[in-house]
Design a protein around this nucleic acid. Structure first.
Lengths: 204, 204
DNA sequence: GGGCGGAACTGATCGGCGTCCATTTACGGG
DNA sequence: CCCGTAAATGGACGCCGATCAGTTCCGCCC
């Protein structure tokens, strides 16, 4: 076969990323190969390299989707909430739920190191920064007395802590320190430690 | 060549693990292959499979060494300290310093997922549990009023938070929330949040 | 409408990988 | 001295990421 023109370049890119995401979710990171992606979208391997620079380029594009998905999920969780304290809790819970509910996507985003030469990916970094700024803004509403530097520091530390819970939960290593697998409990403990006990304590 | 008897099985295992660690540190995870390890110790690839069940088995053995190294480093850091608060701080700083100083070894230990069928590795899990219990014991000395369950919970949450700082630092993603690359600052913030300001505040 | 330039896509190829196993080597007991 | 057997080899297999000369056919121009 030669020229087909069934899909535009952009359509093919989208198809490839979606197919890669499906393979990632269903079969795991190790099973995600360029050959499988190519076969899934009905093209050859060589053609994939006209759409992406290399495999890591495809993975980076996939990671952008994941970052968007997390951002949107957190945004949905907080849009009906007014209290900053509740917002931070909802965001933390949403983050952990995404990580434990989509471990492969989460791991690829945060634990797969891209080679050095691909570092300058402004769009990808911007997606994560947007996610982080959501935390920083909400935290700023809760503790308005903090200066910009202190606020950034506090937000980073807090979110790093939540991120650590996710990291251990996803890799199944939280159980090393006990038996409980309800990661939300650790999340609540982290929130309480940073921001004190919840305002309205439910009975029992 | 056939039978050589230059080294015992156990010696060959140790040589292979040491060689793998060297490659891991010098060249990174992606460059760590069975073929390179075999060549480094002067044997063939096939012989490696008489020493290890497969590549993940070798990596698991390597990870045990890393866990030991972290444990010993933390133990060294705290043996001259009496105050539990200072001990926790020293452990957290030691953990972060190990992670940022040995990123490849740290990543292999915590971010490389072994396949399901290798899950029952009692020795490996015990090494990590020993490390965690060091935290839990020290925390118990600082907050003796906590019951066992609450203590475990608090220790897990605290260490998860420190672990998250490490995770973001190692993957270079802490800078997403700012510019500071002094990970120890986040560490101090986390400690202060959990245990209050340091007892003896140095001037300035 | 016909032909042709070039875009679109293929598929064979390369080197490297993890894994396996039939074969070869040489040590040590008889 | 010789032979059984443990020790180690090396080549084979199927998969991987990546490359690129070659093939096909769309659409423009005359």
């Amino acid at each position: 076969m030669g020229r087909r023109n069934l899909h535009t370049r952009e359509q093919q890119r989208d198809m490839a990323i979606a197919a890669a995401e499906l393979i990632l979710v269903r079969e795991g990171i190790d099973e995600l190969s360029m050959r499988k992606v190519a076969q899934a979208i009905g093209y050859t391997v060589g053609n994939l390299y006209l759409l992406f620079q290399n495999q890591d380029d495809l993975l980076a594009a996939l990671n952008e989707r994941t970052a968007d998905a997390i951002y949107l999920q957190l945004r949905d969780r907080i849009e009906a909430l007014d209290d900053p304290r509740e917002r931070l809790g909802a965001m933390a819970r949403g983050y952990i739920e995404f990580a434990t509910g989509n471990p492969n996507r989460w791991r690829l985003l945060f634990e797969h190191q891209l080679p050095e030469e691909m570092k300058p990916r402004p769009t990808a970094d911007a997606r994560i920064r947007r996610l982080f700024e959501l935390v920083e803004t909400t935290l700023g509403a809760l503790e308005p007395k903090l200066k910009a530097d202190a606020l950034r520091m506090r937000a980073t530390t807090f979110w790093g802590g939540i991120h650590g819970i996710c990291s251990l939960a996803v890799s199944g290593k939280l159980s090393w320190g006990g038996r409980s697998s309800d990661y939300t409990l650790y999340c609540e403990e982290m929130i309480s430690t940073f921001f004190g006990p919840p305002k309205s304590r439910r009975r029992s």
